[in-house]
Design a binder for these strands. Structure first.
Length: 468
RNA sequence: GGCGCAUUCGUCUAACGGUUAGGACAGCGGGCUCUCAAUCCGCAAACAGGGGUUCAAUUCCCCUAUGCGCUACCA
């Protein structure tokens, strides 16, 4: 059985790149009917805090992921400690009593670029004495350069190899008895039965260290897939500089989780068919791990929004209503209006709202009389006779018994033809009066939707306002 | 600096040695039309460079360039 995992470190939010990593692990596990594990890597005692994991979990849930098991490494430190000592006893690792500040000084001054193995030369007597004095120490892996390369197969890139000379005697167990990433990740992946690791390419150079650990324990390494990174529009690794990298930010800006899932999956991955719109279940069904690309891709907000816009207009009004209900602004705006009216409003706006949030501006006129009119529109469309035209239209509309779209259109158009003016001469000012803007859904739809009372009212108010 | 990885339109990508190098987003132009969308039609736009291998290279190999990543008692 395939078992994958997502292993974030709790930094307070789910990075967009991590969200994609999580997603691909999830898709692969689900596609193969395997297991997907969430493991919080909170072994940095200085920076970790259990509360920080909550945001990450919230974001994972928002994008629709579910996991079969959930672990916190901070609750498992005894396990890692035990394994670190096992390597120590078996001669794969050694205690290092060096002062970290001194090592840092040496590397900074280019005296060494990796640890010089000084403590490997310590005699047993010396070690015993240091231990007796309670000297702080770490446990380092002893990388023995036997001239062989460390090679492994990456399922995205093929065979990758590293010279052992290039691998530092990395720390396994820190002075505070917490494990480093390398130790913890290997122990957990082994213990939890993880078979396939999909992770960012930034981990590619960590892999030889981990292979060394697997070998030392005589464990079979999992399959590796190093995913190309997501970059910003300038080609650099995606970070705060490029806008928000917080996954939940996109929820706040009105992106559907389905959009993000769709977009993120197709970044660096392509389905067989020439199609771009997928929902989660299709992605799971069709997921083919062989189709992950090797090279990085740039995050393009425009494309994300374009997919979002397409998803929104394919959605049922009712679903959009539910999603909008999660925004306070929506509830405030639509308070006191019946659901049928609101749903009709959604129907009118949904081909014009790239993000959910766009509803608040574009549909505002449906709920609140415009406080002011678009300045440029006034200049462009209001003529000497406009006020009079509006009055005549008001009279015509008041005569209508059945206030529906076709009747309204007939009434307006015949009025214009009687007055011998172009329909547009009346329609443009009318739009401004009713909505405040020069842009809106079709005018007859707007009139029918607002209803006779509101339309008449707004025309009257406009005549008063424009007289001043 | 060292090591590793990558390189097709502006962007996301397709192509498994032979194609007028395909699609999508963005851009531009047009149709529809009361505006804006939606929709329809069209335009422009790419194989990083150089060597090989081959009857034939975007595709395979090598070199160069460029970009990115890693180089912690962070993960």
């Amino acid at each position: 059985m395939i078992t994958t995992r997502f292993a974030p470190s709790p930094t307070g939010f789910l990075h967009l790149g991590s969200a994609r990593t999580a997603l691909l692990n999830y898709l692969y596990a689900k596609h193969t009917e395997g297991k997907f594990i969430l493991r919080i890597e909170d072994t940095d005692a200085k920076r970790s805090d259990k509360s920080l994991s909550a945001k990450i979990i919230e974001a994972l849930k928002w994008i629709g992921l579910e996991w079969d098991e959930e672990y916190y490494q901070s609750e498992r430190i005894d396990i890692y400690k035990k394994y670190a000592y096992q390597l120590l006893e078996n001669g794969f690792a050694y205690r290092c009593f060096c002062n970290p500040d001194e090592i840092e000084k040496k590397t900074k001054n280019n005296i060494i670029w990796k640890y010089d193995k000084n403590c490997l030369k310590l005699s047993q007597d010396k070690i015993d004495k240091l231990l007796k004095d309670n000297t702080n120490f770490v446990i380092r892996f002893n990388v023995v350069n036997d001239g062989n390369k460390i090679t492994f197969y990456d399922n995205v890139r093929g065979e990758v190899s590293f010279d052992k000379e290039q691998v530092d005697d990395f720390v396994l167990l820190k002075a505070d008895n917490y494990p480093t990433y390398h130790l913890a990740v290997c122990c957990d992946d082994h213990l939890m039965g993880v078979t396939d690791i999909l992770r960012g390419e930034d981990h590619l150079t960590n892999t030889p260290k981990q292979i060394l650990i697997y070998n030392a324990f005589n464990w079979e390494p999992p399959r590796f897939y190093h995913l190309p990174l997501i970059h910003g529009s300038d080609g650099k690794k995606l970070s705060k500089r490029h806008g928000s990298v917080d996954t939940l930010f996109y929820k706040r800006m009105g992106i559907l989780s389905e959009t993000l899932v769709n977009y993120l999956t197709l970044l660096g991955y392509s389905p067989q068919e020439n199609k771009e719109l997928f929902d989660m279940s299709e992605l799971i069904e069709k997921f083919d791990i062989k189709r992950i690309r090797k090279s990085y891709s740039r995050f393009d907000l425009k494309k994300l929004v374009s997919i979002n816009s397409e998803k929104i207009r394919n959605l049922k009004n009712e679903r959009i209503y539910d999603m909008l209900s999660e925004y306070e602004e929506f509830n405030r705006l639509t308070q006191g209006f019946n659901k049928e009216y609101i749903l009709k409003g959604i129907e009118l706006i949904k081909t014009r709202m790239p993000t959910l949030r766009d509803f608040f501006d574009r549909a505002k006129y449906m709920f609140i009389e415009p406080e002011s009119y678009d300045e440029k529109g006034l200049k462009k469309y209001f003529k000497e006779n406009t006020k009079d035209l509006l009055l005549q239209l008001k009279i015509e509309l008041e005569k209508l018994d059945d206030f529906k779209e076709t009747n309204i259109e007939n009434s307006l158009r015949s009025l214009c033809s009687r007055l011998n003016i172009k329909d547009a001469e009346l329609i443009h000012p009318l739009r401004i009066v009713l909505t405040g803007y020069t842009v809106s859904p079709g005018i007859f739809e707007v009139i029918a939707h607002l209803g006779k009372k509101v339309v008449v009212e707004r025309i009257e108010n406009a005549r008063i306002r424009l007289s001043i």
